[in-house]
């Protein structure tokens, strides 16, 4: 799939590190190293231009082992996160968690899709796929956000809602629809960020943002590439082709007007420098919270409605 001449992320990162070293030396020694630095910088720019990932490569980056999960961002960007549990009806879903926290100092309500870090944790959290209780807990937390005037920050990372027998018995579709409805009714600002995978209705359930952001190597689509491939070609191995057809990458979504902004990731992906990825996410979310902070509850409500009302592509005769 990748051409042999294309530079790898590794090459880029080595070059970046070399440039950083030289810059450090220049700074500490007071020497002028521009003559050495400028050709290296030019080379880096040129190589960056040659690295264009296929849609499937981005999907793979969004799933790569070590990709930061929601809690890894939360650890770096918030203080005093108080996780609240349970939907008060059936149970406590571990794939969708949340509670109040300070986001770079601002009190917010967090809604987090958490995939899990080690095998045991991943199984407990069903790899980030929620049962209806997860969405019903999210609704509860949104009630609290409204009551205590806390802006909602939602980090989206799921392949989709859990497709299980019990999930159906307890109304998976109903729970997602109610979560969409509840979020659209919030009288506080909402900022959502797709940090990894944005799989279908399970992702949209907490994706009704005044602003919706996406990380550079995340994807967001109505169906996973594997799901689409098994419907189209009866063969989930054709997922790379399906990924191309679905136009599910951050630049695609920006072009369709589905997201407001792409959050840049460190070269090669967020997993290679989690601190840098978190810093970029934190800055973007905080900036949008600040911008929205000047508006009124009516404006948050009507602005969000207007944002989603206009999405779609059609012609009229």
């Amino acid at each position: 799939m990748s051409s042999p001449t294309r530079p790898t992320a590794e090459t880029l990162r080595t070059l970046e590190a070399h440039i950083r070293d030289l810059e450090g030396t220049a700074l500490s020694s007071g020497q002028n190293l521009d003559a050495a630095l400028s050709p290296l910088r030019e080379q880096l720019e040129r190589l960056r231009g040659q690295v264009s990932l296929s849609r499937w490569e981005r999907v793979q980056l969004a799933r790569i082992a070590g990709r930061p999960t929601a809690l890894e961002y939360v650890e770096r960007l918030t203080s005093e996160f108080v996780e609240l549990h349970g939907d008060r009806t059936f149970g406590d879903d571990q794939a969708l968690i949340g509670g109040p926290a300070r986001w770079q100092g601002r009190p917010v309500m967090l809604l987090l899709q958490q995939k899990g870090r080690d095998t045991k944790d991943k199984i407990r959290r069903r790899f980030g796929s929620s049962n209806p209780e997860g969405y019903r807990k999210a609704i509860r937390l949104m009630d609290l956000a409204d009551k205590f005037r806390l802006p909602v920050v939602a980090l989206i990372d799921t392949q989709g809602a859990y497709p299980g027998l019990e999930a159906e018995e307890r109304g998976q579709g109903w729970a997602i629809a109610q979560s969409i409805q509840r979020m659209s009714r919030l009288r506080v600002p909402t900022v959502c960020a797709v940090i990894g995978e944005g799989g279908s209705g399970g992702a949209l359930a907490i994706g009704i943002g005044n602003r919706v952001l996406i990380m550079e190597n995340a994807w967001y689509s109505v169906i996973s590439p594997e799901g689409a491939a098994s419907i189209i070609w009866k063969d989930s191995a054709k997922a790379p082709e399906a990924a191309e057809a679905l136009k599910l990458t951050a630049p695609d979504l920006l072009e369709m007007g589905i997201v407001e902004e792409i959050i840049p990731e460190p070269t090669g992906g967020a997993h290679l420098d989690i601190d840098a990825a978190a810093a970029a996410l934190g800055e973007a979310v905080s900036r949008h919270l600040d911008e929205l902070g000047t508006q009124s509850p009516d404006e948050w409500l009507s602005g969000r409605a207007a944002r989603f009302r206009k999405l779609g592509a059609f012609t009229e005769s």
């Binding site: 629809a177 969409i180 279908s200 209705g201 949209l204 967001y220 689509s221 109505v222 169906i223 679905l246 136009k247 599910l248 695609d252 979504l253 369709m256 589905i258 989603f308 999405l311 779609g312 592509a313």
Partner: peptide, 8 residues
């Protein structure tokens, strides 16, 4: 794709 999703 995502445009359909947004109709929800």
């Amino acid at each position: 794709s995502a445009l359909s999703l947004m109709q929800m």
